[in-house]
Design a protein around this nucleic acid. Sequence first.
DNA 1: CTGGGGATCGAG
DNA 2: TCGATCCCCAGG
Length: 198
Amino acid sequence: MFEQRIDKSEFLRNPFEVATEVLLGAYLCSNIGGEFCAGKITELEVYIGAEDKACHAYLNHKTPRNAVMFEAGGLAYVYFVYGMHHQFNVVVSPEGVADAILIRSLEPVAGLEIMQKRRNNTKISNLTTGPGKLCQALGITREQNAVDLTGNLLWISPRTETPKIISSKRIGIDYAEEYKDKPWRFVIADNKFVSKKA
DNA sequence: CTGGGGATCGAG
DNA sequence: TCGATCCCCAGG
């Protein structure tokens, strides 16, 4: 069931539609290191380059780190924070429009053993419930920055049912002034695989 | 070149 | 509540 890829054109739609109608409930699949694992996307956040003070590409400011956000949607944007954690984003919108969706939590569905090994943790509920944790579990590092998400290394497989969705403010962006309370975080209702602090 | 801060996590 | 830990980037 993880063979199918989300079509490239889906990533060029409105970012909020991509988040709630395409990505939430879809399956993030990794074959990094030749080890297959996958998880259902249960929590994510939208970041809008042009206006959003929480976005790395605020005011369309382009730097070496965020350059991939300006590419056409369907690529990975992976960066490193707090000296120890990676964050995985799905680049969306057409070329030149710097929008991205941060994947914050997954429900593990395949390759749990490799996730447990990478996380050095056996508790299922603690494998992928956070943006840093899911990168560690799936083996995602900056080496995967700009990877095509319709390829064979790191990809997204379409969802099989329509989830009930709840929105809320985004996490960890208190510096973002009038944008810090925007309800641009989306989770699947009644799913326990969400990040802490939520 | 330098320094301040970060889309987090886990221990206490 | 707080420390770990280091890349990134703005400013000089």
